[in-house]
């Protein structure tokens, strides 16, 4: 193999621009999926620690199911299954096809829902790690539940949750590669297309791997920084 590195450049027959755009799309999908996972995961975690019996069981079942099924199946289900459902509805309404749904939407939803299950686990663990004594201390000075949560529980739980949430973010980035099966042009899809077109398979998959490494490494640094920040605040607050 004589790798022609100009293929990766920004010249006329270089794929540089396409790859950069694809990298941004990976970031875009990941952020959207992570945030929807955070919103829904918080809800699930709340149901698991504070909900009544049926709510708690429901939330637990949700976490078990989404942690036990391959992410790619969930994406298939949302994308192809979604298309099946949309087609059925459309046909019933007498509309003419072909019907399709957005790969972006299906992918973000699928990964977000899977991530919600995992994030709820992290958040629940962080909540349980809050020392009971500090909560009691808040109670005896007469804090309401909301104030207690905002001033005592959340600040402490957040510190414990940061490393775990960092891991969840990392796995969302990697899972975003699976959205390529819907045809959405993110990094994985773009390098597969480029590799097929140019027949430079190794070169482009290596380039793709490096794009992911850059994204995971940079965001790892951000999370570490956040962790250190929060720990510093913690110590100051603790004294």
């Amino acid at each position: 193999m004589q790798a022609d590195l100009t293929l990766l450049g920004f010249g006329p027959d270089g794929w540089g621009l396409a790859l950069a755009r694809a990298g941004l799309m990976t970031l875009y999908v990941s952020v959207a999926a992570f945030l929807s996972g955070l919103a829904f995961g918080t809800l699930i975690a709340w149901a698991r620690v504070a909900g009544n019996w049926p709510l708690r069981k429901l939330a637990e079942a949700y976490a078990t199911v989404f942690r036990g099924v391959p992410d790619i199946l969930v994406i298939y289900l949302f994308y192809f299954g979604g298309r099946q459902v949309v087609t059925a509805i459309g046909t019933a309404l007498g509309l003419s096809g072909p019907f399709d749904i957005s790969g972006f939407l299906a992918g973000v939803l699928a990964i977000g829902l899977v991530s919600a299950a995992n994030q709820s686990e992290v958040l629940r663990g962080a909540y349980q790690a809050v020392p009971r004594g500090t909560i009691e201390a808040g109670r005896v000075v007469g804090m309401t539940r909301l104030v207690l949560f905002r001033r005592v529980i959340a600040p402490q739980a957040l510190v414990t949750a940061i490393p775990g949430m960092g891991n969840q973010w990392q796995s969302v980035i990697k899972e975003s590669a699976l959205v390529s099966v819907t045809g959405l042009v993110e990094t994985m899809r773009q390098v597969a297309v480029a590799a097929g077109t140019t027949q430079e398979h190794f070169l482009f998959y290596a380039a793709g791997a490096i794009i992911y490494l850059i994204i995971t490494t940079l965001s790892d640094h951000v999370f570490r920084l956040a962790e250190r920040r929060s720990l510093r605040g913690h110590e100051q607050g603790g004294i």
Binding site: Q170, I173, K174, E175, S176, A177, L178, S180, M188, V191, A192, A195, H201, F202, Y205, A206, G208, A209, Y212, L213, T216, T217
Partner: peptide, 13 residues
């Protein structure tokens, strides 16, 4: 390297 990249790209690679 292996934890920083998706398994899918490792398989294709």
């Amino acid at each position: 390297a292996f934890r920083g990249t998706p398994l899918l790209i490792q398989i294709f690679m």
